[in-house]
């Protein structure tokens, strides 16, 4: 490939738990290859070394929740040739987007002794709401193999392979037995984006939907099946309102289920 210098990698954090950044450090066996292939120019979770932009690749974790975040992401975008969001917070607003369904100022007043110290936006929104994003890595947290695939693909100048189909296809590939069919366990796998390798169903748990909506999710049909399995609408709404609560198909389905749940109450 005749690279003259190593590409500069920066890892940025917004409102998040750091888990996705840690997936990079979790690469263990591959970590030396990573630092051999790229120059880690900014990654406070891993090193105090900090070099100025521009950066060839910025990995962005977390959602935008403050005015300062909006300014910071704009600066990062300008300094980055490629910007890739990592994880459910950065791609869908994260678990903290649950605030979007309520008045955040009520939370602030209830939680903090001095609410006037807190300056926050009404909503937790994904990075792509504010700046153009070149690629999104799903998951809560992301899968380290997907991260390595992203880096390898960008370094080789090829398109990364990230299937957008259901978790079911991964589940069947690994030979797991469908928990919904064989055990009656409610599972979000059929409407959830692949990427995790179907970890939960392989351990006899229903999918929690960490990777958000798949390419063409039929949430209504799955909801009917969950109802037949005995899951009340309010519980269906809760299952959809987790890490990807603000992702449109999950949000709409949860809203519909929540409304149906209210109708049912005496």
């Amino acid at each position: 490939m005749g690279r003259t210098r190593k590409p500069k990698l920066a890892v940025w954090k917004f409102a998040s738990c750091d888990g996705c950044q840690l997936s990079l450090l979790d690469c263990e066996d591959e970590l030396l290859d990573v630092v051999g292939a790229v120059e880690i120019a900014y990654f406070p979770e891993a090193t105090r070394v900090s070099s100025r932009g521009p950066y060839d690749l910025s990995l962005v974790e977390g959602s935008i929740t403050t005015l300062d975040d909006i300014r910071r992401i704009a600066t990062i975008r300008k300094a980055s040739k490629r910007l890739v969001t990592i994880g459910a917070c950065a791609t869908a607003g994260g678990i903290q987007a649950l605030r979007n369904f309520k008045d955040v100022h009520e939370f602030v007043a209830a939680v903090y002794a001095r609410p006037d110290y807190i300056d926050t936006l009404d909503r937790s929104l994904p990075i792509a709401h504010y700046v153009p994003v070149d690629f999104e890595l799903r998951g809560c947290p992301i899968n380290k193999y997907q991260l390595l695939e992203l880096l390898s693909a960008l370094l080789a100048g090829r398109r990364p392979s990230f299937p957008e189909h259901s978790v079911c296809i991964e589940c069947k590939r690994r030979g797991a037995v469908c928990v919904m069919v064989a055990q009656g366990t409610p599972c979000l796998g059929p409407i959830t984006h692949a990427g995790c390798g179907a970890i939960c169903p392989a351990f006899a748990r229903g999918c929690y939907g960490c990777y958000g909506p798949m390419e063409t999710p039929n949430t209504a049909s799955l909801g009917e099946r969950w109802t037949a399995l005995g899951v009340p609408p309010a519980a269906q709404a809760r299952a959809l309102r987790t890490f990807n609560a603000w992702a449109e198909p999950f949000r709409a389905a949860a809203d519909a289920a929540a409304a149906a749940g209210k109708d049912r109450q005496p």
Partner: peptide, 28 residues
């Protein structure tokens, strides 16, 4: 009703569709 999840094709004993995927190492 269809979830487009693909389960039917993967349990089918005759469905044979595949995709081809390239992987490359970090160092090339």
């Amino acid at each position: 009703r269809c979830l487009t999840c693909g389960n039917c094709t993967l349990v089918c004993p005759t469905c044979f569709c595949t995709l081809v995927e390239d992987r490359s190492s970090l160092g090339g």
